[in-house]
Computed example of a mutant assay.
Amino acid sequence: MRLCAWYLYGEKHRGYALNPVANFHLQNGSVMWRINWMADTSPRGIAASCGMMVNYRYFLEGTASNSAAYLGTKQIKASEQVLSLVSQFQKNSKL
């Protein structure tokens, strides 16, 4: 889960999220809300993402500012759960 959080939050292409689905939702002003363990246990889900799924949450009052921040300064808005996983990854990673 820590590696998944880092991949979605920390891995970038030209400053934007490397994952195309994450990039889509973040451009539209969402918050990277929650990473769910074994949420997709179909063969395709296991092969594509080890069964993990991500919830992106849209707070209507914040979508415009979140989108502007992401597109302008490449800042990703994320929940405490996601940021905690990212922090844990950074503490334990040799990358």
Rank of each mutant, 00 (worst) to 15 (best):
Y16D: 06
A64M: 06
Y7A: 11
A64Y: 07
V31R: 08
C4V: 14
L60A: 11
V21R: 10
K12H: 03
V21C: 11
N36I: 09
R34E: 11
M1P: 09
N92C: 12
M52K: 10
Q88D: 10
P20I: 08
V86Q: 02
G15F: 11
Q90R: 04
G15P: 02
L71P: 09
C4F: 07
Y70V: 03
M53C: 15
Y16N: 12
S79A: 08
C4H: 04
S93L: 00
R34L: 11
Y16E: 14
L3Y: 07
I46Y: 11
V21H: 11
C50H: 13
L95Q: 06
V54H: 10
A39L: 08
S79T: 05
F24Y: 14
M38K: 05
S42T: 14
A22H: 04
Y70S: 03
A48S: 14
Y56V: 09
Q75C: 04
A78Q: 03
H13K: 15
A69F: 06
A64D: 07
Y58F: 13
I76P: 02
T63Q: 13
S84C: 07
Q81G: 00
W33I: 05
L95E: 01
S42G: 07
I76K: 00
R44T: 15
S65W: 14
E11F: 04
R57H: 07
Y16T: 15
L8D: 00
L8A: 09
I76L: 01
E61P: 14
K91E: 15
M53G: 12
A78T: 03
S30D: 08
T63P: 01
N66Q: 01
I76R: 00
D40P: 00
L60V: 13
M1R: 11
I35D: 08
A48C: 04
A64G: 04
F59S: 14
S93G: 03
Y7D: 05
E80K: 10
I76N: 00
C4P: 01
G51L: 12
N28R: 10
I35E: 04
M53H: 12
T41P: 02
L83G: 04
A17M: 02
P20L: 03
A48T: 08
F89C: 04
I76T: 02
T73M: 08
I46E: 08
A78F: 03
L95Y: 01
A17Q: 00
S65V: 12
S30Q: 02
I76V: 06
G29P: 08
S93M: 08
E11P: 10
S67Y: 09
R44C: 03
W37H: 10
M38T: 02
G62K: 15
E61S: 15
W6L: 02
V54Y: 05
S65L: 14
A68R: 09
T41A: 14
A68P: 04
A39E: 09
M1K: 10
W33T: 00
